[in-house]
């Protein structure tokens, strides 16, 4: 009897043990190791020469212009990508949701395709498209008599170019999530709204948006976190340049990966803190506006 009760209390813990072990090894431990590293001047060649230096890495970080440039770039990138992606994805979802036509089915498959292509290939192809002298983009602009752009090769347009590629890459995936949300709204609610004499704008604002708010909220958080950690497009397309104009926080970390691991770790910790704060703020500000069924 006693045995069974003891087993009853133990059983749940035993059952989550494998998952917890994995989380401990691959999530909790690395985070704390990262935190530890951020307090050291770490010597990659000779571990014994690593030295505890307290908050020096953080002091150095906060006095560096490069860090602020990277932070600023990341913020601009995140805000623009998140806003553009959500707005375009929502518009696309609304468009596809309006009618079940062949064209819409094609559009739906079409906008999702970029998501299944490797971002490396996408970045490389877009680099070709954006090439100022021989690229198709400038050729098209010229054909229509529009001013051309230097795209990735000028510090004033490079960030915008990276943003363009990221939005293009992401928008189909999120449009699909929002489309699924739109399709789960019961049509009778719209009929009730029509009988209540609601205008199209009012129906969208008072019914559609609140009904898909959980998915919008999810997309907002996932995209914000993802955009803050942007790396691959920057690494391939610009390498942070020209003139640091596309250097982002993660790229900043990457640049210091070998010659100052402690400093890179400190930047990583700061990035983590920023994302945690942002997510927390989102929940505090928006949670009561999100309607869960």
């Amino acid at each position: 009897m006693n045995n069974t009760t003891r087993w009853d209390t133990l059983r749940p813990y035993v059952m989550i043990l494998p998952a917890m072990l994995a989380i401990l090894c691959f999530v909790i431990y690395p985070v704390f190791y990262l935190l530890k590293l951020s307090f050291y001047r770490y010597n990659l060649l000779n571990k014994a020469k690593s030295k505890f230096i307290g908050l020096d890495n953080y002091k150095q970080l906060f006095s560096k212009d490069e860090f602020y440039v990277a932070l600023n770039n990341t913020l601009i990138y995140t805000v623009t990508v998140v806003l553009l992606t959500i707005v375009i994805a929502l518009l696309l979802a609304l468009l596809i949701n309006r009618k079940k036509t062949r064209f819409n089915a094609f559009l739906q498959a079409g906008i999702f395709t970029p998501h299944i292509i490797s971002i490396v290939s996408i970045a490389l192809v877009w680099m070709l498209l954006m090439e100022p002298n021989f690229g198709i983009l400038n050729y098209v602009l010229k054909t229509f008599g529009l001013p051309t752009s230097k795209w990735l090769q000028s510090s004033s347009t490079s960030m915008l170019s990276v943003i363009l590629v990221s939005v293009w890459h992401n928008v189909g995936y999120y449009a699909l999530i929002l489309l699924a949300a739109l399709q789960s709204v019961p049509p009778t609610i719209y009929e009730a709204a029509a009988l209540d004499n609601a205008s199209r704008f009012k129906t969208f604002y008072k019914i559609t948006l609140p009904m898909i708010s959980p998915q919008l909220f999810f997309v907002l958080i996932i995209m914000t976190i993802g955009s803050f950690k942007v790396f691959d497009t920057v690494r391939i397309m610009t390498g942070g340049g020209p003139n640091n104009s596309t250097s982002t926080l993660v790229y900043h970390i990457y640049e210091y990966r070998s010659n100052n691991l402690g400093y890179a770790s400190a930047t990583g910790i700061i990035l983590m803190v920023i994302i945690a704060i942002l997510t927390f703020v989102y929940f505090r500000v928006l949670a009561n506006k999100v309607h869960y069924q």
Binding site: P186, T188, I189, E191, A192, A193, K206, I207, P210, M211, S213, H291, Q293
Partner: peptide, 9 residues
Amino acid sequence: FQNYAIYPT
């Protein structure tokens, strides 16, 4: 309506 079609939000 049969399923009431109340605005849940």
